[in-house]
Every structure is written in C-alpha cells, then in structure tokens.
Design a protein around this nucleic acid. Structure first.
Lengths: 316, 316
DNA sequence: TTCCCGGCTGAGCTATTGCTCATGGCTTGG
DNA sequence: CCAAGCCATGAGCAATAGCTCAGCCGGGAA
C-alpha cells in the first residue's frame, strides 16, 4: 500500500509536471484538473522537479559554457566565472573573453560610489579596455599592477590604465617603473619611494583586479614582448615556472617562485591566497597548465575563459 | 550586424534559460548577472522558450499518456480525454480507466448544485461506479441510458444507476424496460408511456454521460451478456456494425445503423453530433476500431482509455 | 539634416508561485 | 484498544513572474 501510494503520487507528480512544463498550464488549472488544492498542485510540480522526473535540455552552445563555468566556480571556489564559446576559426582569439571582461568592467565602473580597478597584463585585458563603454566617473580610480615603462624609457604600448581612464574620466595611476629592475636591491629601494608606494597603497584597496595569465614556455608573452630575455625565461622555467600573472612567475602548484626575475620584478605582488576579486582572463591550449596552476594556488578567484580551455582545465 | 545582434540575443536567451531552468536562479538574479533589467531577463527567458532553445523531457510512463491524451483531444476535438498507462500484465483490465472514470464521477458529483449523470453500459462504467467515493448529494439525479430489465424480467446485474445512487443518496431513474423489445412498433409505443418519457426527458438534460463502447464482433459484450442473439449480432455485422454505445450499433464511420436491433432498442439514442459531455470508456485492441469510429462519428466527445489503445487509435 | 517608424526598454501593476504554519487524519507501537 | 508522532493538507502571505504601456533610441527616407 505504501508503495502503491508512493507510485500514484509520483504518477500525479509526473502528470502535474507535464501539464505545467509541457502543456504550459498554471498550477491553478492543474489543481482543478487533478482535483487537488492549488497548494498540492504546487507540491506535485516541486516533487516532479525534486525527483528529477523532468529534465531540461538546452540545445545551444551556450549551455555547455554555462555548465563548465558552474563546474569551475564550484571546483575552485571562484567568486566569478564566465566561459564563452570557443571561436573555432581562431581558438586563441581573445575577442570573446575580451567582450566579457569589458562587460565586467562596465558593470563595475557603472557604480556611482567610487571604485578602484586594478589592471594587469595580457592581450585580453587590453582588448577589454578598448571595448569598455565610455562613462563619466571621475571619482573612480584605475591603477596599474605592472610597471609600464619599457626598457627604453618610453611609455609602454600596454598603457591600459591610461586608456581606461580616458574612457571613464577616472583618476589613473600608472606604475612609473620598468617591468624589471636591474637587481633585487634596486627593486626594493624603488618600492619605497613615495609615488610607487602610493600606487601600491591604492592597488591594495582595489575592488577589482583584472589580470591576464601568461604561460611560461618558449612563446611566453613576457619574452615575446621583450620584458624578459631568453636566458631569464629559461632560468624561470628551470626553477619550475609554469605561468605568470603580472610578471610574477609561479610553479605548477601556483606557488610564487622565490628566485629569478621575481626578485627584480616591480609589479605589485598577488595576494596569496587572494582576497580581492581577482579575475584571470586567458584562453588557449598553451595556457591550460598556467591557468590551472593559478586556480589551484588561489592566485585568482575569478576566471574568464573559453569553452575549450575550460574543458581542458577541468579534465586535468 | 542584424544577424550578429540576433545571435547575441539568442545567446543571452540561452544563458538566461540555463540560469533559470537549470541553475534555478530567479529572474532578478539573472538580471543582475546579465546586466539587464528584470523585465529584460524575463523576456530572455520567454525568448528561450519561444525559440525552443530549451526542451523539457519527462522521463516517466505518464508523460507518454499525457502526450497521447493531448493528441486525441486535439484530433477529435474532445472536451475531455484521459489516457492511463497500460497494465502490461492484463492489457484488457479496466481497473486503470475505471479509477479515472470514478475520479471524474467524484468530481462531477462533488458539485453542490444539482447535476444529472447518465450512465451507459460497460464493465469500466460498472467498475467506476463501485469506486466512487460515497458522498451525500440528495439533489443529484442518476439516470440510466439503457433498459436494465433483462429478458427474464429481473433487474439486471448491471444496475449501475442503483449502485451510484446508493453511494450518493441521489434520486435515480433506472430504465424499466428490456434491452430490446420484440418489434420496432412496440419499442416506439413504450417510448411514449409516462415513466419512460420521464426518464428520457431527464437523460436529455444530463450534465455528464458516461458510456462504455463495445465492439461488434463474435465476442461482443451485448451478445456475451445475452442481450442480443448470435443471429441478431451477425445481422448487425452484416449491416456494417463496428461498435455499439448503449446498444446502439454504428458503422466504421460512426453512423448509427438504421436497421437490425437498433429498431427495437429501448436505450436512449445518442445525440449526433454529441453536445452533452459524453465520455466513452474502453480499452483493448479489439475495441480500437469501435472507439475510433465513435470518435469520428462524434458519438462521444470525451474518452478515457489506456496508452496502448490510444496509440492504436492514433495510428489508424 | 530632420522626421518617422519599428523595436527595445523600464516602470508599475496584476497574476502566479513558493512557502510557512496550524490542523487533522493516519500509521505505528504499546 | 489507545496514545504518540508523522505526514499530508489548505489558508494565507510574501516573493516572483508576466504583462501592458508610454517613452526612447537607432536606422532609413525625404
């Protein structure tokens, strides 16, 4: 009898679910049809869901992305995660994630109360800044996490901070230092001088950090862009470097390396474990290890990537 | 650009649909996530549904039944249709449909305002009456559509009207006539006498008619039960009889036959096309033709059957 | 350039849904 | 047989969703 009742209850749940989701009736109508109170009809619909009698199938590429994002968020305890469809014509293209990053920046900057946004390196970050909707927010602050004076003394091409400030009217704080100093000692000295200390102080209070993630292999962006030499790169790789964020190299477990260029790096060091919302933006098979390491080491607590990369990270 | 926008809109719709149906967020939350107003989020969810980006799958035997019922209702313009799972152990069993018929009777009889229920023949109808929940409704009326005096003058075993009246305290009107009279003339004469005319008058005003559907083959219930002889049955079959409702034989197109036993039948003739809610209750492969003909001929505007039978009717 | 049109948007209202709580019937164990 | 406890029920309320309407924006024609 108990089993009988149970079965008939599930039958009714299925009926209610069908009428609700498939036939599109209201619970009131269903209640009348099944000769029960509306409250019971509601319970039946709930039961149908709870017992997984009904399943939803979303036939759209986006569905897989949402699913992956949810899994990444869960697995790495992320505050934010977005996965965009992979552009099959150009799997490395940053356009997709840049759009999402821009959207995130838009959302953050839209706030009327002053916010501080800190920016790192990376093509995606740069592209994102270009896509930010112009808006007038003079009380916001944009701060750079990396030195943006290149070796020859000119302002770097990567003047993302300036560009973003242009678009928002926000005060901006570029880091008036070379990417690398000539020695650890010199780096430490520079870190103490007033303008640098001020930038650091602001960066510490950032509400949002948006950073690129670089892999440390022969095609490492920091090397390609001429910030580190071939020898420096190789040394870091020998020390176990898998990836870098704002120049800070870390190993396969996401631990910042003690030696090599990290000693002379002027970039603002990542908080470990991260507390501020720190979104990593990166795509591509080459970056999978670097991204996974950053996630594991809690160097970032947010990720914007594409479907292929997300899948690869989860399958490791 | 138009295509671009369209695509991105569908992407958002898919995202919204995923977040709503799969992740279970509210539209308010989704609005915040997607940086749109709640109204827009609602539109996106609607769009997701409208564009059939999302589909519902109900993994339960009942789902197929609901689907079949909906198709039957549509196809034959039925006011009411129910399909129950086929009892694979006993495909002819009327238990399933009887339960539904009883439920329908319960619902009808529950009304406080007086209703008139008319009953026909059939095992399912009889079984349904037995399952009706007792309730006190002295102002309802239960009327028989068929003569319930058998050839030997005793009250028929099929005294469904009396049984139902017992359970409801309703006034009841059995039809005090044999199933068949000896001649057309006699039948017509009887039809005019006071008590019979009164029963007819009440039956005409019935709010609900619940009838069985019999097939006209060698195992026809009307013959098995001894209401018509073998010869009479064969004659009706020769005249094209496929099925019968309250004894009234009809052909494959659902047209009532002019000759044979129909001339001597005391049952109240079906309205053609039917206006009163008239529910046919029948299951079994043998009855498929008879049911289909009744549906096509608009002899009934409601059907309670099982999955196998429903499927067979629709596949004809 | 200006005007018009179509479609999108958000505000605000109403319908629908989800949930809580008090009640009562039913089962289980003594 | 009775008592205790469990679960289902329906009323009523708070949250959520759906819809209408007026206004706005962008694109195209004069």
């Amino acid at each position: 009898m108990a089993v009988e009742n149970e079965k008939s209850r599930l039958d009714d749940a299925a009926r209610a679910g069908w009428l609700y989701f498939i036939a599109g009736h209201t619970q009131d109508e269903i209640a009348k049809m099944l000769q029960v109170s509306r409250a019971s009809a509601q319970r039946l619909v709930s039961l149908c869901l709870a017992e997984r009698l009904i399943t939803f199938r979303l036939e759209h590429p986006i569905a897989a992305c949402m699913e992956l994002a949810a899994r990444l968020k869960e697995r790495f305890e992320l505050a934010h995660c977005e996965v965009v469809p992979t552009d099959s014509a150009a799997p490395q293209a940053t356009a997709g994630i840049a759009e999402r990053c821009a959207n995130l920046l838009d959302a953050t900057l839209r706030s009327e109360t002053p916010v501080i946004v800190a920016l790192g390196t990376g093509r995606a970050v740069r592209a994102a800044v270009e896509r930010v909707t112009p808006i007038d927010r003079p009380n916001h602050q944009i701060v750079s996490l990396v030195g943006n004076i290149s070796a020859d003394g000119s302002a770097s091409f990567y003047d993302t901070v300036g560009r973003l400030a242009d678009r928002t009217g926000a005060r901006h704080y570029p880091m008036p230092l070379p990417f690398l100093m000539s020695s650890e000692d010199e780096r430490n000295k520079m870190g103490r001088i007033e303008p640098i200390a001020k930038v650091k102080a602001i960066a510490t209070k950032a509400d949002l950090r948006l950073v690129g993630i670089g892999q440390m292999d022969q095609k490492a962006q920091v090397h390609v862009d001429g910030f580190v030499t071939r020898d420096e790169l190789f040394e870091m790789m020998r020390l176990g470097a898998i990836g870098e964020i704002t120049g800070w190299a870390y190993d396969a477990k996401g631990r910042l390396l003690k030696g090599g260029t990290n000693k002379r790096l002027t970039s603002i060091p990542p908080e470990v474990p991260v507390k501020t919302t720190t979104i990593g933006a990166a795509v591509g098979a080459a970056k999978v290890s670097a991204i996974a390491a950053a996630l594991n080491g809690r160097l970032i607590n947010g990720l914007i990537t594409d479907e292929a990369t997300a899948r690869a990270i989860l399958e490791r």
